[in-house]
């Protein structure tokens, strides 16, 4: 998945300026940046929700707009931030929606098996029969993740686009979600995720794109992007980098006083 020189503006306000990126199957690409840096706008351009004013998005060598919607849906799934559901579907019925691009009239036994496996993967099997609106925010988030997982379950080299997939999740499930995403990349999927927590991004991402005021400030492996200078540029905060003694990940620790 390639984005070339994307720009997007609303009125005279430029939300994104000349951003390019390349996301490969087998890699987790994290998009990070301060609030209002253009992360969600970039993901919406990549998913096709918004059309770039300038530039183009290519998926598997083909312009996004040239993909037939149904074919694209079988290769690529998108998890947005909104999780409203107008109907009181059971959790398993919600996840089955992800299989809709794959069956005509009635779901096959295989579709139901994928639903079960996706629910298992996000640790929600025990709630399969519950009504979606009765779930907590974090459980709803995981159910929606299961839905997009089910959508591209069998797509070799398929892509997942996740917009802040960790919002509302507890610590365990934040890690679990990223671990699932990481395992998917090992199976040949490409994952692009907007993340807020730099430490989690440092731990799980293969590539990082740092945005600031609609422009790409830095991109590359976490070790290259997460330097005190770049983080100060991107977030306006002084940090120190520590290396985790046993795991070897960089730990980003703000050095601002807690009593300003």
């Amino acid at each position: 998945m390639i984005a070339n020189n994307l720009s997007y503006h609303v009125g005279s306000k430029k939300l994104l300026h000349n951003v390019s990126l390349t996301a490969r199957p087998g890699e987790l690409l994290a998009i990070v940046g301060a609030n209002g840096a253009g992360k969600s706008t970039l993901l919406k351009l990549l998913s096709g929700d918004l059309r770039p004013g300038v530039g183009e998005v290519l998926f598997e060598g083909r312009r996004l707009a040239d993909w037939p919607p149904a074919a694209l849906a079988r290769r690529r799934a998108v998890l947005t931030q909104q999780h409203a559901l107008a109907l009181a579907f059971q959790v398993r019925e919600l996840v089955l929606l992800g299989r809709y691009p794959h069956f005509g009239g009635q779901p096959t036994a295989r579709d139901w098996a994928v639903v079960a496996a996706a629910l298992d993967l996000v640790d929600l099997s025990h709630l399969a029969g519950r009504a979606y609106p009765t779930l907590s925010g974090g459980e709803q988030q995981r159910a929606q993740l299961a839905r997009v997982l089910a959508q591209v379950w069998e797509a070799e080299g398929g892509f997942l686009l996740l917009d802040e997939p960790l919002t509302g999740l507890d610590l365990r499930h934040q890690h679990h979600t990223l671990a699932v995403a990481h395992q998917l990349t090992r199976r040949g999927f490409g994952v692009i995720a907007v993340l807020h927590d730099l430490n989690l991004a440092a731990q799980y991402a293969d590539q990082v794109l740092l945005l600031r005021q609609g422009r790409a400030v830095a991109s590359g492996p976490p070790a290259q992007v997460f330097t005190p200078d770049y983080i100060h540029l991107g977030f306006g905060i002084e940090v120190e980098l520590l290396i985790h003694p046993s795991l070897g990940y960089p730990l980003i620790v703000p050095t601002v006083s807690s009593h300003p």
């Binding site: 059971q90 398993r92 019925e93 036994a109 295989r110 139901w112 098996a113 994928v114 079960a116 496996a117 298992d120 993967l121 640790d123 029969g129 379950w153 069998e154 679990h176 671990a179 699932v180 395992q183 998917l184 090992r186 199976r187």
Partner: peptide, 22 residues
């Protein structure tokens, strides 16, 4: 916690019965 298989996705045996509501 469940984990993905390294290679191809593993699926549990297809459930014989439809979900009760269907």
């Amino acid at each position: 916690m469940p984990v993905l298989a390294e290679k191809s996705p593993t699926l549990p045996a297809p459930t014989a019965a439809l979900p009760t509501r269907a």
